[in-house]
Nucleic acid binder design. Structure first.
Lengths: 106, 106
DNA sequence: TTGACATGATACCATATGGTGTCATTTTAA
DNA sequence: TTAAAATGACACCATATGGTATCATGTCAA
C-alpha cells in the first residue's frame, strides 16, 4: 500500500478535515473536540484514530485526558503528490488553444 | 457540503489516483484505462464517475468510445486547502523547541 | 475514599463503497 | 447488413465506514 494512502483516506472526511483545522490552533482533549462536532465522543475518537493512522495527528495520554496534537509535516507528501499536477494546469490552457485552432478550421 | 468534498473523496482511492496520473499523459478510453487496472471495466467506469463528480476529469462520448480527460485545475482548491497548513510545518519545529526546553528543566 | 470526569474498548447498526456479472444499445468495419 | 467492439445501466454482494449505546478503568478533587 502506498504510504500516502492512510493520509489521503484521513483527509477524505469533512469532520476530520475540520478537526485538523482546529488542532492547528492548539492541542485539544477529545472532549473539547467533541464540543464542536455534533456527534458522540466515541465517534470523534474513531475519527482521531483514523487521523493518527494517517500520521496527521499525535495522541498522548496526560493524566486522565488525552491530548491530540497536529502533525502538519505529514501533509507534505500529500502536497508533493498533488504538486505533480501543477504543471498540467498551464498545459490544459495549451490544449484549449489546440481545440480552438481545430474549431477555426471547421 | 463543502465544494471540496467530492474532490477529496475522489482522491481517497489509490486506483483513482493512479488513473489521474495516467490521464496526465493523455486522454484515454475506458477500455484503455481498464487494461492497467486489474479489475473489470464496470469497476473502472465507477471510479471514473467518482472522478468526474469531483470534477477531476471530464468524460466525452466520441463515436462508440468515451474519452476521459484530466481536469488538473480542479486540484487547485485542494492544494489551497492544504497550503493553509504549510505555515505550521515550521511552527512545529518551534513546539519541538519548547518541548526540549521543558525537558532541560526537568 | 469516593464520586465525578475523561477515556478506552466493545458490540451493534445502517449506509456507503468497491467489485462482479449480465444484458441492452450504439457504432464501426468488412 | 451484420458481427464485434465499446459502453451504459443494472442488480447483487461483501466489506468498510461513520455513528450510537454501554460498560469498565484510571485519575483528580473534595
Amino acid at each position: 500500500m502506498s504510504p500516502l494512502q492512510p493520509a489521503f483516506r484521513a483527509l477524505a472526511d469533512p469532520t476530520r478535515r475540520d478537526i485538523l483545522r482546529r488542532l492547528s490552533a492548539r492541542q485539544m482533549t477529545i472532549s473539547e473536540i467533541t464540543l464542536h462536532c455534533d456527534m458522540t465522543r466515541a465517534a470523534v475518537k474513531k475519527h482521531l484514530v483514523v487521523l493518527e493512522e494517517g500520521n496527521l495527528i499525535h495522541m498522548q495520554r496526560q493524566g486522565r485526558e488525552t491530548l491530540s496534537t497536529l502533525n502538519a509535516e505529514a501533509l507534505k507528501p500529500v502536497v508533493d503528490w498533488l504538486s505533480y499536477f501543477e504543471s498540467f494546469w498551464d498545459e490544459n490552457l495549451t490544449n484549449l488553444h489546440d481545440l480552438l485552432s481545430k474549431e477555426d478550421t471547421t
